[in-house]
């Protein structure tokens, strides 16, 4: 095992899968140079046919990925920032997710879309929104959002081998994070959560960069004698309901932490599921900790205030602890 950065782990996943399967190729804006360094170096190894720099045409590029996928290839389309997925929305929502069902099972779409998701670089509204919740709302699009290099590599490899459209969301704020990445080949299945910290008093469920926010909060809470169980969902669609419900059955308290705008957030879905499924085991109302309900501001001070922070998580946990 070697400690590797998130960026390096993603690079490895892409290179290994491209070596393994000649049908796998990558396209997007400046994937050759690598706006995000995870695609860097692939062109040197695989050449221009398998690492394709495209014009700035998100709709056409995403759609071309679909067309290639239904014709026997396994495209990886890098759309750079999550907000640029909005420009490709039609092809994803109307086509990629629906095609297999709509055409009565005649085809399938083994496509990976990748993008950086969420805030943290103070770049203003157009570059800082988290978009995962939109795609959770679309039937038949898988969504993964790993928080560690190890999970990133294992999940991206699973996504590339998956026979369905998968959206892989990474984060600039995690790019330099390191974890132990096994030398041998491994896969992490889509849809399986990871319990990051065991605890008996409250379940904190989260995904992506806010995993670290939740872990920070759990540490503080522990000093007060409150033991939080922190679940990193890793996959948003499908998501590991079993792991979450088992945990809540044990703790009786549920706090969802999610960098989405609040309405119809990922947290909303988790909270509703918990309230429906294990209502009788809950000791307190479920809590959601999300972004503030405003567009993303530029000022670093404002941006920080919009995002879910440790203090917000602690306050939500305290609310649940007020019930006994």
């Amino acid at each position: 095992m070697a400690r590797k950065t998130y960026v390096a782990a993603i690079q490895e996943a892409l290179a290994e899968e491209m070596r393994r399967d000649p049908r796998v190729f990558l396209m997007g804006e400046d994937v050759r140079i690598g706006v995000f360094p995870s695609t860097r170096g692939l062109h040197a190894e695989f050449g221009g046919k398998r690492v394709i720099d495209t014009p700035i045409s998100e709709l056409a590029v995403a759609g071309a990925g679909i067309g290639a996928a239904v014709n026997g290839l396994r495209p990886i389309v890098d759309l750079m920032f999550g907000t640029f997925l909005y420009l490709a929305f039609d092809q994803i929502a109307n086509q990629a997710g629906a095609m297999r069902f709509m055409y009565g099972g005649q085809t399938n779409v083994p496509l990976v879309l990748m993008a950086q998701n969420g805030a943290g670089s103070s770049a203003g509204h157009h570059h800082s929104q988290a978009v995962h919740q939109f795609f959770m709302n679309m039937p038949q699009i898988k969504v993964i959002m790993p928080s560690t290099p190890t999970d990133g590599k294992g999940l991206l490899k699973s996504a590339i081998r998956d026979d369905n459209p998968v959206l892989f969301l990474h984060s600039l704020s995690l790019g330099g994070k390191r974890s132990d990445v096994p030398e041998n080949e491994y896969l992490i299945p889509i849809g399986e959560a990871d319990i990051k910290r065991a605890g008996s008093d409250v379940t904190i469920c989260t995904v992506g960069p806010t995993v670290y926010t939740a872990l920070g909060a759990a540490k503080t809470l522990s000093r007060e004698g409150i033991e939080a169980e922190v679940i990193d969902l890793r996959s948003l669609s499908p998501w590991d309901k079993g792991a979450v419900l088992d945990s809540v059955a044990k703790t009786g308290r549920f706090v969802a932490v999610d960098e989405s705008f609040p309405s119809c957030s990922a947290a909303s879905e988790w909270a509703a599921t918990v309230a429906e499924a294990v209502f009788s085991q809950l000791k307190a109302p479920v809590q959601r900790v999300t972004n503030k309900d405003v567009p993303m501001p530029f000022s670093p001070a404002l941006e920080k205030a919009v995002l879910p922070g440790e203090a917000d998580v602690i306050a939500a946990v305290h609310k649940t602890m007020a019930y006994s």
């Binding site: 103070s122 203003g124 509204h125 157009h126 567009p295 530029f298 000022s299 404002l302």
Partner: peptide, 10 residues
């Protein structure tokens, strides 16, 4: 101009 809400690109 935008009270710090916009930034360079806005």
């Amino acid at each position: 101009y935008c009270k710090g809400k916009g930034g360079s690109m806005h």
